[in-house]
């Protein structure tokens, strides 16, 4: 009897937990359902849960609602370039902060800390004027170079580098390994989890970024997917929600695929970062 009661409570708990999980996932399921409905179905009451016949056409229509091939290409170029550039700059800097002592180190480290704390919402006006002076406003560069220094990455990587045993480095130096070889052969392989974390975090935040491209671009040809999808709201008016949701599903798709494969690393990356 006692055991029965216990099980009852347990199952109630399981059901409530699943209900809570659904509460957070439902809007995305609803997005997919709407994306496959006809206009008439979206306007009906009570709402249609599962469309009578899936309207794949909505996706075609959404993708014809703007130059989406260009948006997607821009998103890929921007995100890819940022990650490559950040890695090239971050690895030597993290190594220097971890393994050398030099005059001014606290000052430079403090500068990195400052870069970590100052949000783009504060710096966007002066950065825009600066890049306009450099004549870059009509290119993709304003969406890439301001992110060349990844302060969070430098912190995390420095932490990893400091944990690598000094003996390993000394023995490599005895073998006359150059500093470059040391980083390439020892430091990088041994800090792979940190590098994966940083890359994933960078990918998610820049793929999803809306504010920066919004304030840096004034022409369609250099905009990323986030702005393209948001613009569907204007071009499709306020009634064609099935088309807007189809476009939206295209934006969410890649992130959910990446999340499905790397959920543990992504979760860890976000817990580490503290700030998004």
């Amino acid at each position: 009897m006692k055991r029965m009661e216990f099980n009852y409570g347990r199952w109630l708990g399981v059901i409530l937990k699943i209900a809570m999980g659904l509460f957070f996932i439902f809007p995305f399921l609803w997005m997919l359902s709407t994306a496959l409905q006809t206009l008439k179905e979206t306007l009906s009451f009570p709402p249609v849960w599962i469309p009578a016949s899936p309207q794949w056409d909505n996706f075609v229509r959404a993708m014809n609602g703007g130059p989406f091939a260009i948006y997607a290409k821009n998103s890929l170029i921007i995100t890819g370039s940022i990650i490559v550039l950040q890695f090239l700059i971050m690895i030597p800097a993290a190594y220097a902060f971890a393994k050398y002592s030099f005059v001014g180190k606290p000052l430079f480290f403090g500068m990195t800390l400052l870069a970590f704390m100052i949000p783009t919402q504060v710096t966007f006006i002066p950065v825009y004027l600066l890049l306009a002076d450099w004549g870059l406003i009509r290119t993709l560069w304003p969406q890439i170079i301001p992110f060349m220094t990844n302060a969070f990455g430098i912190f995390l990587l420095r932490q990893y580098f400091m944990q690598i045993p000094q003996e390993l480095i000394e023995s490599a130096k005895l073998d006359n390994a150059t500093e470059f070889k040391l980083i390439w052969r020892i430091m990088i392989p041994m800090s792979r989890p940190a590098l994966a974390t940083i890359a994933l975090f960078s990918f998610v935040s820049h793929w999803n970024d809306y504010f920066w491209p919004l304030v840096m671009t004034d022409s369609v040809s250099i905009r990323p997917l986030t702005l393209g999808i948001a613009a569907l709201k204007e071009t499709e008016g306020i009634t064609n929600w099935h088309v807007i949701m189809a476009g939206n599903a295209v934006l969410v798709g890649p992130i959910l695929v990446v999340y499905a494969f790397f959920s543990r690393q992504i979760v860890r990356a976000f817990v580490y970062s503290g700030i998004k």
């Binding site: 995305f28 999803n208 949701m245």
Partner: peptide
């Protein structure tokens, strides 16, 4: 699993989140 699920809104772009809720709050 539930924690992984409730985390999804956080990794999805704010653009998507806003648009979905805009539609739900219509």
């Amino acid at each position: 699993i539930i924690q992984g699920g409730i985390f999804i809104p956080h990794i999805v772009s704010i653009v998507s989140v806003s648009l979905v809720w805009l539609w739900m709050m219509e």
